[in-house]
Design a protein around this nucleic acid. Structure first.
Lengths: 149, 149
DNA sequence: CCTGAAATAGCCAGGTC
DNA sequence: GACCTGGCTATTTCAGG
């Protein structure tokens, strides 16, 4: 993980479909060299995949929300098993603090939001924060300053 | 936005580098047809880009955290202006509720976490939740059920 | 939306430092 | 080990229908 790899990561986080030839041009390298490095980063788990970023609003999801949940005793495990089946959940984290879980969800309308919360209250006490706007979205990960290869 | 477009979105959310030829094969269409549809979805803002998904741990970020912040009076605007400059912030949302802001951050170590919180307390009251594990990561967006094209 | 051709890009040797 | 070049294959892109 030298500086070249971080330049490659930077490019691919900005546009995952950018051709290796062009990345190579900007770095003064050939495309096989880039390809080798990318494959190695994929194998090492540094690169976990490539995803299209889709706008929920454009698909008809009127609301986005952050929901924290404090699980009832014995209900955390069942919830963790349930969450992967919920299409509304885009991201879900186990966290420290009085709440156990925080998830980012997309909802089609008010009724959908209500039904979703109803579903959750079987597992714990929830707190819902409707998203007003996204200030930063998928900011690329840079090189850790403390990192000494 | 018909069912074909949603199939394409599904594929590209799973792997943004999947060739259009292969997507076309699975849908019984030619690659130019896929290309046209993708370009149209990009122009409409449905597809906002393509990003490599990078593992923070593999880069040397030891902590990930969700931080909520309740801004002091007159401090929300300055914070919103500041946030885009912070490399630690991967996502940041304005939300409803007693807190105004929630952000997802990556930190290199304990000291980094401390410095970052110190920076934030100039703007408001913070609550930090260290991420223990990510239960769901970047779950693909599906077709809204209520959507009637 | 298709086909078919042209331009690009990715990929597999083999060779160099 | 990391990189380059050359040639082959795959993919994208562009035209016309």
């Amino acid at each position: 993980m030298d500086v070249v790899n971080f330049r490659i990561l930077e490019a691919l986080q900005e546009d995952a479909r950018m051709p290796f030839t062009r990345i190579g041009q900007e770095l003064g390298m050939s495309s096989p060299a880039i390809s080798d490095r990318v494959k190695k980063m994929e194998d090492l788990g540094v690169i976990r995949g490539y995803k299209a970023i889709v706008d929920p609003k454009a698909l008809g999801y009127q609301f986005q929300a952050m929901i924290t949940l404090r699980a009832f005793v014995g209900k955390l495990r069942p919830l963790l098993d349930k969450v992967p089946q919920l299409r509304e959940v885009r991201n879900c984290y186990r966290i420290t603090g009085t709440e156990n879980i925080i998830m980012e969800v997309v909802l089609e309308d008010q009724g959908h939001l209500e039904r979703f919360i109803d579903l959750l209250i079987a597992y714990g006490e929830t707190r819902t924060h409707v998203v007003l706007s996204q200030v930063i979205a998928q900011n690329p990960l840079g090189r850790p300053l403390a990192k000494k290869d």
